[in-house]
Simulated scan of single mutants.
Amino acid sequence: MPFGFFRKTKKREDTNIASRKPVGRFRVEKSLKVFSRQVLIGEVIEGLIYPGYKVKGKSVSPIMKIERDHRRVDFAVAGDRVALMLEYEVPCEEGEELEIYQS
């Protein structure tokens, strides 16, 4: 199909964290819904974040895409203000710090 949002997605139960130690931290400034996906806007506090890594808060979700200044980027480093598009919703509040784990 030509549209990505019609594709089947994995079930939430399939999302596990492989690493024991977080590779980064992300501070949430705002949470939005875009095309039925959650987008977290905020700052990378420490570490390096790639698409495919997982965000852990009250639940876990893979990062599908990272954008900086409305442009897709391959990674984000400490100090970057970015938007993370997630596969699943992660309940979080403004100012909350989420851990980032390698897949």
Rank of each mutant, 00 (worst) to 15 (best):
R7A: 14
R7V: 03
K8Y: 00
K10W: 08
K10C: 04
K11E: 06
K11M: 12
K11P: 01
K11W: 00
R12C: 06
E13A: 13
E13M: 07
D14G: 01
D14M: 12
T15W: 06
N16C: 02
I17A: 03
I17T: 09
A18S: 10
S19A: 15
S19L: 04
S19N: 13
R20Q: 06
K21T: 15
P22H: 07
V23C: 03
V23L: 07
V23W: 04
G24H: 10
R25I: 02
R25F: 13
R27S: 12
V28Y: 03
E29S: 00
E29V: 02
E29Q: 04
K30F: 08
S31W: 05
K33Q: 07
V34A: 12
V34R: 10
V34I: 15
F35P: 01
S36D: 13
S36E: 14
R37P: 05
R37T: 09
Q38N: 00
V39I: 13
V39A: 02
V39P: 04
V39K: 09
L40E: 08
L40K: 11
L40S: 09
G42L: 01
E43T: 11
E43K: 04
V44H: 01
V44D: 06
I45C: 11
E46M: 03
E46H: 03
I49S: 11
I49V: 14
I49P: 12
P51R: 00
P51K: 01
G52L: 12
Y53I: 05
V55P: 04
K56L: 11
K58V: 05
S59P: 07
V60Q: 01
V60K: 07
S61K: 06
I63H: 02
I63G: 00
I63E: 01
M64R: 02
M64I: 15
K65P: 04
I66E: 05
R68Y: 12
R68S: 09
R68E: 10
D69L: 14
D69E: 15
D69G: 00
H70W: 02
H70E: 12
R71Y: 13
R72A: 15
R72K: 00
